[in-house]
């Protein structure tokens, strides 16, 4: 058997793949969260951030990253599914009086939390990236108004070739999205599960690649716990703040008050 095949076929090999893809996703989640939190800095900041994400790299590279992330998820899930099937086969019969001694709840529910997370990710992408969830098709006119706002940097509208650069109204999309109670609820539950998934996963991934011992296990377990909670709070605070009315829609795209009239003009010209 080729060495790569034997690696992938082995339980340890698949665990290592899981750890490595897990690492990619753990880092992505942190980046994503930090990006999201910019909503608290004002609509113009989050909108500018969204613009940057889409335009910093050429479209091909952006798609490359997206595919890489999706592939990581796919490999992560493939490894989880095949390992789970193998594990079920290895232990067809359990104990009549089964007792857990030290395994944490999160470690025993990785599959459950993982499956719900997957469902959430599918919804989340459909909701905020592809934007085709019925009644929340944010790209369609009239769902959020306006759906495009001028890009604002350092308090000024960014101009290109004499025209204001327009960007998608992410701020309003998020606020509109989270104003729907079940979206927020799903989001908070999912990030809660993500927290659980991470409190085991972050430390576990070091174990799987062999970079852990008793001393560092204690430390990494703590890091994982903190990481999980930070991620949970960082994500969950947005729907909570929205529901509480702290985050509001901003049809101007966060334009400074002084420039509001100018912006109105621009919008007008644009509409013409």
């Amino acid at each position: 058997m080729c060495s790569l095949c034997s690696f992938i076929k082995s339980t340890i090999g698949r665990k290592i793949l899981m750890a490595l893809t897990g690492l990619v996703l753990v880092l992505f989640v942190m980046g994503h969260m930090l990006g999201n939190l910019q909503i608290f800095l004002g609509a113009e900041v989050i909108n500018a951030y969204a613009y940057k994400l889409h335009h910093l790299l050429p479209a091909a590279a952006l798609w490359g990253i997206r595919i890489f992330l999706l592939a990581s998820i796919a490999v992560h899930i493939w490894a989880a599914v095949t390992l789970t099937l193998d594990n079920r086969k290895a232990r067809p019969e359990g104990y009549d009086s089964d007792k857990v001694v030290q395994a944490s709840y999160s470690s025993r529910t990785m599959r459950m939390s993982g499956i719900i997370l997957l469902a959430f990710i599918v919804f989340h992408i459909a909701h905020f990236t592809v934007r085709n969830v019925p009644s929340m098709q944010y790209n369609e006119p009239g769902v959020i108004e306006p759906s495009e706002v001028p890009l604002v940097k350092h308090g000024e509208v960014v101009m290109k070739n004499g025209h204001a650069v327009m960007t998608f109204n992410v701020n309003d999309m998020m606020v509109a999205g989270f104003k729907v109670w079940w979206v927020s609820a799903f989001y908070i539950i999912a990030t809660g599960l993500l927290c659980m998934h991470l409190t085991h996963g972050v430390s576990s991934m070091f174990q799987s690649v062999g970079l852990r011992n008793s001393l560092w296990r204690k430390r990494l377990d703590r890091v994982a716990l903190v990481y999980g909670w930070v991620v949970f709070l960082g994500f969950a605070i947005i729907p909570i703040a929205t529901m509480a009315g702290l985050l509001k829609k901003d049809p101007t795209g966060g334009l400074p008050v002084a420039s509001v009239s100018a912006a109105a003009e621009i919008t007008e010209t644009l509409h013409k």
């Binding site: 340890i12 665990k15 086969k89 395994a103 990785m110 799987s208 296990r217």
Partner: peptide, 24 residues
């Protein structure tokens, strides 16, 4: 045999208290 999910029940049951370090 199945794969490891790093949950540590083995370590708890081991009568010689072999730690998970060995798996790492």
């Amino acid at each position: 045999f199945g794969g490891c999910t790093n949950i540590g029940e083995c370590e708890a049951a081991c009568p010689k208290s072999i730690p998970l370090d060995m798996i790492a």
